[in-house]
Design a protein around this nucleic acid. Structure first.
Lengths: 193, 193
DNA sequence: TTGTATCGGGTACATTTGTACCAAATGCGT
DNA sequence: ACGCATTTGGTACAAATGTACCCGATACAA
């Protein structure tokens, strides 16, 4: 039996259990015991696969980033071979919106990590939290392709900030996902007619 | 001696101690003992003025909202009697940007509360977390005054979302406050020429 | 078969946290 | 001066949490 693969699968299972607990009860509720119970394993097993809680937290964050990247990949694959920039941008920004339970959970946990990173240096340096930078460059590239006349970096920052802010307000229940998407599309209309 | 006033002052002192701890070490680090130590009083005193930790948390949130409202009032007072909408909007949105240590602390703690509210119903219903709604109405009013031709509610949502998102990215260190303000002013230029 | 390393489970322990209880001190009216 | 209510302080306690330790079981190598 390939023990290595099995080990990685176990680690993923446990990390996903942590993300489920964090999504439903908050990241502070993701204790070692709660994660073990959610994963259906013993406390010692969690300790066995992750020597310390910090390692588990970091691994779960990486797993979260992997899931996000995978979902984006699927969105791109669903589009044609030469999609229009406007189409790409709308897909990316829609993915960043908490519409269903899964994306709500993602937003909640990711924001929890971001807040935690403010006071935890070990988290702050983690590459997964630099994802917005890569996203900004990508959006800027698409924008400059569609509208070479405007300041792509600036507009990309504005667009992503608006997307993040709208996502937060949807999470807070201040507006519905549809309203948020309307606002976002309105901004997109200005940029990519 | 007016004991009532003294009592309120004490409660404010303790609440501010909680906000300081939360800003520097995270809201999860704001334990009863940590707050007492920060306030320079005994643990029992904190218990005396706030029967339970939840009450302390709620009161501190209200105090945070009061401080924010006070700062906004000062910004308005510093402007002329009949300020131009563009001026008002820029002041409001600048206040929402984490430029100095104080506004950084405010952003950090407020976001911590928002994240907590996702899983804590007692917090979710708190009026202080509905502040963005009032802010949106206010911004929409200023916008419609300057540009009656556009959809004020929609543009206000967009502007506030962008402001919140930019604030978050400044907190995360992805860009400087100056860069964020540049982006924000660019959007304002589009709306209020 | 025997030894050994990995996987799995249960229990124990020191620390921390919210809360409760009991004692001293201080201010005020009588 | 005395009694009483309020304020302040110290200690105690049950629950939870991260971590460490000990004991089987199982699969592979010699």
């Amino acid at each position: 039996m390939a023990r290595g693969e099995n080990r990685d699968q176990r680690r993923r299972d446990i990390a996903e259990a942590l993300l489920r607990v964090a999504a439903e009860r908050g990241l502070h509720a993701a204790t070692m015991r709660a994660v073990a119970a959610e994963a259906g394993v013993s406390l010692h097993l969690v300790q066995h696969y992750f020597d310390t809680k910090e390692q588990l937290m970091l691994y779960a964050l990486e797993h979260l980033a992997r899931q996000m990247a995978e979902r984006l990949r699927q969105r791109f694959a669903a589009m044609g071979s030469e999609p229009r920039p406007r189409e790409v941008l709308e897909a990316v920004l829609a993915e960043a919106m908490p519409t269903d339970a899964r994306s709500r959970a993602f937003h909640h946990v990711y924001t929890s990590y971001v807040v935690l990173a403010v006071t935890e240096p070990a988290l702050a340096v983690h590459p997964a939290l630099a994802a917005p930078n890569a996203m900004r460059d990508f959006v800027a590239g698409q924008l400059s392709k569609a509208r070479p006349d405007l300041d792509a970096a600036l507009e990309a920052s504005a667009l992503l900030a608006m997307s993040a802010g709208l996502g937060a307000s949807v999470m807070g229940g201040q507006q519905s996902p549809e309203q948020a998407m309307t606002v976002l599309r309105h901004q997109l209309d200005r940029l990519c007619p």
